[in-house]
Design a protein around this nucleic acid. Sequence first.
DNA 1: GCGGACTGCTTACCT
DNA 2: ACAGGTAAGCAGTCCGCG
Length: 899
Amino acid sequence: MSKGRLDDYLFSAQKPKVEPKTQVETPPPSFMEAVRQEKRTRRSFEAPPTLPPSYFVSATYNGDRARAVVKLYEPKSKKIYFWHDTTGHKPYLFTNLSPIELEKLDRVINHPGFDHFETVEKYDPLLWRNLALTKVVAKDPLAVGGRPTGCLRDVIPQEWAKMDKDQQAKVWEASIKYYQCYIYDRQLAPGMIYSVENKELTEAKHETSEENIKEIQTLFTEEPKEFLQPIENWARLLEYPVPEFRRVALDIEVETPTIEIEGKLTFRVPDPRDADHQVICASLLGSDGKKRVLLLKRAGVREGVEKIPAEISVEYFDSEGKLILAIFEALWDYPFLITFNGDDFDLRYLFHRAQKLGIRRSEVPIELGRKNCLLCYGVHIDLYKFFFNRSIQIYAFGQKYRDVTLDDVGDALIGLTKIELTKGLNDLTYTELARYCLRDAEIALKLTTFDDDLVMKLILAITRISRMPMEDVSRQGVSRWIRNFLQFEHRRRGMLIPNTDDILAVKGKTVTKAIIKGKKYKGAIVVEPHPGVHFNVAVMDFPSLYPSIIKVYNLGYQSILCPHEECRFNKVPDTPHWVCTKSQALESLLIGSLRDLRVKWYKSKARDNTLQRELRSWYSVIQAALKVILNASYGVFGAETFDLYCPPVAEATAALGRHSITQIINEAQKLGIEVIYGDTDSIFLKNPSESQINSLAKWSEKELRMELDVDKVYRYAVFSSRKKNYLGVTLEGTVDVKGLTGKKKHIPPFIKESFDLMKTRLSRVKSPSEFEDAKKEIKNIIRDSYLRLKRREWKRIDDLAFNVVLGEAPEHYVKTTPQHVRAAGILKEKGYALKAGDLISFVKVVKEPHVKPVQLASNSEIDVEKYIGYLHSTFDQVLDALGLDFNEIIGLTRLERFM
DNA sequence: GCGGACTGCTTACCT
DNA sequence: ACAGGTAAGCAGTCCGCG
């Protein structure tokens, strides 16, 4: 492969200025002819015998051909090609029964999906020895598992139990999706570059990236050589270039019955399974700049006066069928489709509507799943699922959006909101409808283009790390990502993937007692804060503490409580557990190497201003992806839903975390440093000297074998006696607020605003002497808010609304009825449909039951005293430390008022 | 029958 | 379908009280 051609696949900033002359071969005409012919019956996008470097974006199983199929995105033509397996790979499971024993089981050998037996040796990591197993090979994946009854994975143990009561029949690896099994067995890397040569799938090398990988390796020369291989493997996955994704955002509008509640119009969302109503509009916005809005001609609908920008092509259809076929045409064309909730609405609706209208199945580009809707040709990314992911929400986007709605996510990330409707969807003019629908598609598209295609790159980075197809990455949680790369590594090393029950049976449960009732084991330590205002506070932390512990202390399901007598001395403090000293656990190796790579390479590269902007942006994406995965990498071992669930591993990790912070606090005190606060992995040091900080960091490195960094320095920090509750002003004057009520999103904007005023005033304080003036002004801020409440002078009633998320459906609250649920109940009576996840806005009123949904409340009903109480408690968290007293502050004003 | 002490539930936050 | 720890407010319960 020549280097010049591969460079076409780099992001644009790395591209040579002059367009290279070499053109990517267009597929031979015979192939194109075949496509055209097949299109009439069933479309096919078979890769030609030679395909230039292309990105592995997805894998699935083709039932007709009974083989795995890989979707390859060729970035020059911006098309997807299908490559079908040529190796005859088949689905299978492992069992401890011998072929002779299995032969006796009629329901196995006569199973229509049964193919043949093979005898194999596999290393069992729980028993620490090889097992002789039988590989039961099947003709199709559903024969192994996936059907509710009659699968080989169920039939084998069932039938054997009838034959022999003493020996138990066991099966392994029978619940792995077939295409994942294929990826593992062929050691493929989704998201990476492959070409097709001589009909074979071939890894493509990228020289510039390979040079980076060499440079990265030099950072780890001190590490043992077993550690270098995972570093190199991760680095390759992360350093390789990223393509431009040609994509289209789709949004459809359906004629809806509207109902009126309290003078407001509410839509009844049409059921996509019934698909009873007409599709009246669709927007298709392409990353290629194509902007289309498709409108259904309907009797009595007027044109409208709104301006539709000239670059948008407005197309009218006299039949709904033609409109839907036009949408489908785009879905047969674009390699990537972006929707917001397309799995549950847009695509599902289109599928069923197409059926109703009698559109031929071969024209419908949608593969209907139970929980998702995939595409026959391209890759469908449902942004709702992606942004719903808690880890993505918190760690990749720093909680910028709280409601997973197109409106809220769009507003928070790209400052674009939905168009508000003043009348029902059915009553809109064509141009009003077009504008509304276009905006939704515009938000969806921009959510994937902002910050240099951040979202697409993030999905690609995780695709590579997790060894999963892009569709799955965007729909599944972080525990699946972690599980899959661990399973992949088991296969690489010929290790049997253990069953969850077996891990639990061999390694047992936890022994420590959690502080919180109902939790499984003891967690982290929070240091009692020293109340008051402290100047010059250095915050030191262990970067990625738990992943470090997993690496340094060799934690994993295999190494914890290993069978070796000689390892029993290697105890985990505060627990009876011990850890293996003989060989390194997979989790320790993989999570440890991923952590080191992030800390030693990507963290600094993401901030390196000497790099080209686009490269730096890719590095910050990797950095964010690693953060998301590493943050969850300890928690998964304590999660019952994780396939490699191992409570003692989670417990040992937390115990070693407590050990680490305790030790470091001890040492800090020995060095004469006052530790004013600490939480889990951080310590707050009061006015430490440079040399004290250095000594502590050195001690940590030497004695704990863990880095300890200065994370930030506060000009001053304000603590009350409450844990997880403080305010810090950095040297640059930005204010960090942690845990204070004034920051919480549910409190009324009225209170939040005065809290923010105080925050701004505090950011200007530079020295203890400047505090006095600030205190005076803060008193004024509080006094002013108090008086405005007393005099009932608020701008809008919404400013007094509490906004609380409904954690469950209203009827699900049986133990107690919290206030927001009470307010929800009132709304429900009025005909609003409410479900889990909805945000309830309510105000506090004088009359029973003391709450009212803000939509229904009027100013005169407000219980002012309640709000003053809230103002009080919100400010108290800071006033304590400043030596101020809320009652005194407002007490003064009471006198003033009567003057 | 009422109020204070208490427990438990719920949400939002921190690491 | 990552974990545990903490704060705050409120709902509901128990218990004492001639």
